[in-house]
Structures are given as C-alpha cells and as structure tokens.
Simulated assay, not measured.
Amino acid sequence: MGADYSSFTTLQVTEGNGRVTAVLNRPEVRNAIDAAMVEELHLLCADLEENPRTLILAGSNGVFASGADIAQLRERRRDDALRGINSTVFARIAKLPMPVIAALDGYALGGGAELAFAADFRIGTPRVKIGNPETSLGILAAAGASWRLKELVGEPLAKEILLAGRVLNAEEALAAHLVTELAEPEDLLAAAHALADRIARQDPLAVRLTKTVFAAPADAHPAIDNLAQGILFESQAKFDRMSAFLERKKK
C-alpha cells in the first residue's frame, strides 16, 4: 500500500499520468529541509520503489529549497553526521527506479542544491540561484555535492562552488549543463511535465534498466549492459515496438 500523502505536512504530493509531483512546502523558511521533510521523502521513496513512476520535485512560493534547516542543523553533533540524515534520503532518491526531474525556481542552495543534484534532470527558471555555501557555516556539503557536483560540472567549477562559495545564476547553470533548460516561473511545472511526457513515451522497463546501467561503476561494464539487454531482448515490448517501427517504415 502506498504512502498516505494526505497526512504529509512538508510535501504537497499529486499523482497521475504515470508520475508523482512532490512540491516542497515550508514557505515560512523558504522550503528548508528539516527532519519532517526527510521522513516524508523516505515515505515517498518507499512508494516509488514499490510502484515505480517518474518523480517531479519542485518548490513553492518561488523557491526550490534554501538549504537544510539551519536551526536543526546547528544542534546536530558528530553522531548525527555519521547517521547521514540528508545524504541517505538523497541517495535513495538518486536510486529510484524511474527518472527524477527537479524543477528549480529561486534558491536551490546547500541541501536544496544537493537534493537537485540527486535528480536525473534539472530544469530551472531565469531567477534560479544554485550553490553550496556550507563552508561559510563551518561545515561541508556532505549530502552529495562534494562528489556529485564534480561529475556534473567538472572539477574546476565544482571547487569554485564548494571551496569559494560561488553561487551560479540561471545562465551560468545552463552553460555548465547543471540545468538543461530554462522556463519562465509560470511555465516551469509545464516544462517538467513535458519532459515527463517524453519519458512516458519510452518503454518503462527499458528506461529503468538504462538508468541502472548508467549508474553502474566502470568495472561493471560491459557485463551489466549485456545482462540488461538480455532481459530486454526477451520482453514483449521490444517485439511490439520493433514490429510497429518496421510497419511504419513500410508505409
């Protein structure tokens, strides 16, 4: 049985068309990620692991997420850090079976940026600001940015963001391919749904296995590619889709 989204207090969740949209909704603190939101994200992941669908993550009131909740973060100690409170749920989001789309507006900073980095796709608005100012607070970006960001934008720019506090504006994020598309704020969710529509036109099993193969470590290839392809070569969708392709070519 899926999560009871009606009981959620920090996420507004809607379902339909083979996808789930989760809007971060703590506008009084610019959607800062607190323990309650982490717990609701875990429940959301559990549902999507059980019933795979594309996930769209967005913010409310012109902000994606301003970061982790500093009031809570200030009180955390060594054992809290070792528990990996945010990093654990972000890793779970990154490993969801179907793609995750982050729709970014306004601030996506600190933990908010790291949540976005865990997504497979990032779409932004012209007013997006994305970066990791953790070192200015005496901590490091320990929920994924310290290693994901290098993979996403390259080492020189990642070091500017992580070590020198650089915050990218929308055009800089687009040039660095950190976001792949810009849309006006009023069109942001529509752009995310248009991308989800394109994903929905693909074979779901092929998408799931491609995401798994893409994330596999280098030494797993080509064995994992061949195993995944072996599964797909036996799927009915492969025969149906290829037959339809060949029929279209005849016309």
Rank of each mutant, 00 (worst) to 15 (best):
K95Y: 05
P97K: 09
R208G: 04
D240S: 07
A216N: 02
K129I: 13
V13R: 00
A176D: 08
W147G: 02
V167W: 01
A173I: 09
G84A: 12
A223P: 00
P204G: 12
E114L: 10
A228Q: 06
A119I: 14
K238S: 15
R53S: 14
R198L: 15
L246F: 14
I93D: 03
I85K: 04
V63T: 11
F233H: 09
A244W: 08
G18D: 11
F233D: 13
G62T: 08
L115V: 14
P52R: 06
S146H: 12
A22P: 00
L195W: 08
A68Q: 00
R78P: 00
G67Y: 03
G2Q: 11
G111R: 10
L96P: 01
P52D: 10
A119W: 12
A190E: 15
D120W: 09
F245D: 12
F245E: 13
F245A: 15
L55R: 01
E160D: 15
G2Y: 03
D187H: 07
A176Q: 04
L57F: 10
L163Q: 05
L188D: 10
E50D: 09
F245H: 11
N86V: 08
R19N: 07
Y107N: 14
R19M: 13
V38A: 05
S7C: 03
I93C: 01
A206F: 04
E155R: 03
F117A: 13
F121T: 09
F239G: 06
E40D: 09
M98D: 05
L149C: 09
D197S: 11
L188T: 04
A228D: 03
A141Y: 04
E49K: 07
Q236P: 04
E75M: 09
L189K: 01
L11A: 08
F214I: 08
S60F: 07
D4V: 05
I101C: 01
P97V: 14
S66Y: 02
F90G: 02
V207K: 00
Q229K: 11
A170P: 02
T14H: 01
A200K: 05
T88V: 12
A218Q: 02
I85S: 01
R208Q: 15
T54S: 11
D240Y: 07
A220K: 01
F8C: 05
T9M: 12
N25W: 13
A190G: 04
N17V: 05
K238W: 14
L195H: 02
N132S: 13
A71L: 14
V128M: 15
I101G: 02
A158I: 09
A22T: 09
V13I: 06
V153L: 10
S146V: 14
L109Y: 11
D187R: 06
L168A: 02
L195G: 05
